[in-house]
Computed example of a mutant assay.
Amino acid sequence: MWLAIDQAAKQLGDAAGDEVSKGAKALVRKLFRRPAGPVEVPPLTREQITSVRRHVLELAAQHGLDVEKATALADAVAVRLAAVDGQAASDPDPDSDQGAENNAQ
């Protein structure tokens, strides 16, 4: 009888060991697999860049940045986004003075 119990315990131990081994292998594969590659982000539209610029102005105002610095920051962000997307970066927002005035209030 003890032999049967010993054999059953051994089989249970082997089965548990196999499951742990499978789990460990899966974890190692997951940790060391190569990334799929860079993610392609579609270019932003002019409206999206304008929206980001306005959001930067709002956040800058909330954090106490004066209007001149906030506008410079927002313009720099918009120009950078436009340049990354290959758009003309000369005028990120045609109503930039209006946006700065709205955020100053």
Rank of each mutant, 00 (worst) to 15 (best):
A4E: 12
I49G: 06
P92F: 09
V39Y: 12
A72F: 07
D14Q: 13
A60F: 00
I49Q: 03
H63N: 07
V79D: 02
V84I: 09
D75G: 04
A15I: 10
W2Y: 08
K30P: 03
D85F: 01
H63D: 15
A72R: 09
A78L: 01
T45A: 07
A4C: 06
A82G: 01
L12D: 08
A61S: 10
L57R: 01
M1V: 11
E47R: 12
A100T: 03
R53G: 13
G64P: 02
Q87T: 02
L59A: 12
A9Q: 09
D95Y: 04
K30Y: 13
I5Y: 11
M1G: 15
R46D: 15
A15P: 02
Q11H: 10
K30R: 14
Q105W: 06
A83F: 00
D91Q: 08
I49Y: 02
D93Q: 11
D75M: 05
D14H: 07
A100Q: 04
D95P: 00
M1R: 09
A61H: 02
D6A: 13
F32N: 14
R46E: 15
L44R: 14
V56I: 13
P35G: 15
A4Y: 07
G37V: 12
L31Y: 06
S21Q: 09
A24M: 14
D93M: 14
V52R: 12
L81K: 01
L65A: 03
E58L: 08
V39A: 15
V84A: 14
A16M: 05
V28W: 02
E58T: 03
R34A: 15
